[in-house]
Nucleic acid binder design. Sequence first.
DNA 1: CCTGGGATTTTCT
DNA 2: GAAAATCCCAGGA
Length: 217
Amino acid sequence: MLKLQRLKTNFYKQNTFKLARALLGKYLVRKIGKKTLIGKIVEVEAYYGPKDKASHASRGRTERTKTMFEKPGTAYIYMIYGMYYCLNIVTEKKEFPAAILIRALEPYCCHPEPSRRVATKSRHDSASASPRRAEPTMTEKLSNGPGKLCQAFKIDKKLNGENLISSKKLYLAKNPQEQISPSQIKKAKRIGVDYAGHYKHKLWRYYLKNNPFVSKR
DNA sequence: CCTGGGATTTTCT
DNA sequence: GAAAATCCCAGGA
C-alpha cells in the first residue's frame, strides 16, 4: 500500500531549480469530496524571476501574475489558449516571482467513474521493463501534458492561490520509500516558449528518463 | 517522421 | 487587437 506524507513548508523553501528536480517522483493529491486522485510528477519546468522572458512575471505584477509573487507552496493556476488550465507551484520568497509548471503526471490510481481496472498491476514502477499496459485508464490518457492533467484532476482557477501546505483539496506528498537519483533525471529546453529571446534556450525543463507519461522527449 | 493550422477566451497593450 | 507556459488532427515527405 502506498504510504504518503504531505510535503511541508521546508520542502518548498528550496531554490527553484533544486525544487524542480525534487518534485520529480513526488505525488500530486487532489481530493474531491470523498474521492482522491493521485498522480506522480514526472515532468516539470522552472520559471524564474522577473528577467525570464518566458515567465508571465517578466512583465511585472498584474491581476493574473500576482499569485507568482506569493509565498512558496502556493498554487498558481492560469488559463491558457482559452481552453486549458496549467498548474504551477510557486517558489522562492514572497515578492520574488518564480514557479514550477507541472507538465505531466503518472496516475497512481483511481479514476472511479468507468469500471475500469487500474492498469499498473505491479505497482512500484521498477526500472524493469514492464510489458505494455493493457487498458490505459482514463487518467493515463489524460495526464501527459500540462493542460490535460488539469482537466483530468479537475483543477481550475478556483484553486488559484491555494496553499498546498494546508489545503484539503490539493497538495503534494512523498512516499518516503521512493528516492529519485540524479541519473534518472533528464534536462531539456522548455516547451512552447520560442518568443522568449535567449531564455528559450535555458535547460529549465526536467523529466524522468524513460517515463512514458512525459509529454515530450 | 515532421510541419502547420484551428479551436477558444483571457489577459494585457 | 494580438498573443498565448496547449492540444489534436490532417497532410506531406
